[in-house]
């Protein structure tokens, strides 16, 4: 059974009486352990698909199954819980809270899931160790470089041990070298068996993933799953 299952997803916006079909009958499966990329030009419906996959938005019609649960009709509160428990977000602009230090930023998802202080701190430190930033736990985000900030954001995404890690242009705001390091990190998570969905407009980055979904005009233009095609092979450590 796939981890994510989209069936005939439509999303329609009304803008000044005009109907905009952002998604027009999208169906796709994402399996557990996939390293999946969503690629497409701006205005293609890529962002809308990403929001629906990330449970930030609900579709107009169609069914969405995540980890065996149908969630197309979930309330905002239920969606918040799903985001908190099942999804880890990594953003292009890192989106760390500037007034909190690194440790507190990483603790934040666990605050919303209501975990106790001691356990929060232990798990946050563990996650920071994973991204090799445990010695920066008391720093403010503004005191870190872009790559370090993104690593903190990754630690924050991992800390609740989500089923899916969702990355929206994670290297878009970094220089190419730092971007490589961040991508390496994602490859590492993939090897550990985590499910990763990477949204990008860069075909080179998309080429590194095992499952490539190309979207155009609200429809899926290409869906290439190398795992299914028997093309699964070790992904090169560096490009």
């Amino acid at each position: 059974m796939p981890l994510v299952e989209l069936r005939d997803i439509h999303k329609v916006y009304h803008l000044g009486g005009e109907e905009i079909r952002a998604l027009d009958g999208v169906s796709l499966d994402i399996n557990e352990g996939d390293f999946c990329s969503i690629i497409g030009p701006s205005g293609s419906g890529k962002s809308t698909l990403m929001h629906i996959l990330g449970c930030l938005d609900s579709p107009t019609s169609g069914t969405l199954k995540l980890d065996g649960m149908e969630i197309q009709n979930a309330t905002p509160r239920q969606l918040a819980t799903i985001r908190n428990q099942k999804i880890g977000f990594v953003f292009q602009f890192f989106n760390l809270l500037p007034k909190l230090n690194v440790l507190q930023n990483v603790e934040l998802p666990m605050v919303y899931s209501g975990l106790g202080g001691r356990e929060r701190r232990e798990r946050a430190m563990e996650a920071l160790r994973h991204v090799e930033l445990e010695n920066r736990s008391k720093h403010r985000p503004s005191q870190l470089s872009g790559g370090q900030q993104q690593r903190v954001a990754i630690a924050r995404a991992l800390v609740n041990n989500p089923r899916i890690i969702f990355a929206d242009e994670p290297t878009g705001n970094l220089d190419s070298h730092t971007g490589e390091l961040i991508l390496d990190m994602f490859r590492g998570f993939h090897r550990e068996g985590r499910t990763i969905i990477l949204v990008t407009h860069d075909p080179e980055i998309a080429a590194l993933t095992s499952h490539k979904i190309e979207i155009r005009d609200g429809k899926i233009a290409a869906n290439l799953d190398r795992t299914l095609a028997g093309l699964d092979r070790p992904i090169p450590a560096a490009v």
Partner: peptide, 12 residues
């Protein structure tokens, strides 16, 4: 920031 908190699972 509020949007980020919501993405991380903060409810209204």
């Amino acid at each position: 920031e509020i949007g980020t908190c919501k993405a991380l699972g903060a409810t209204g």
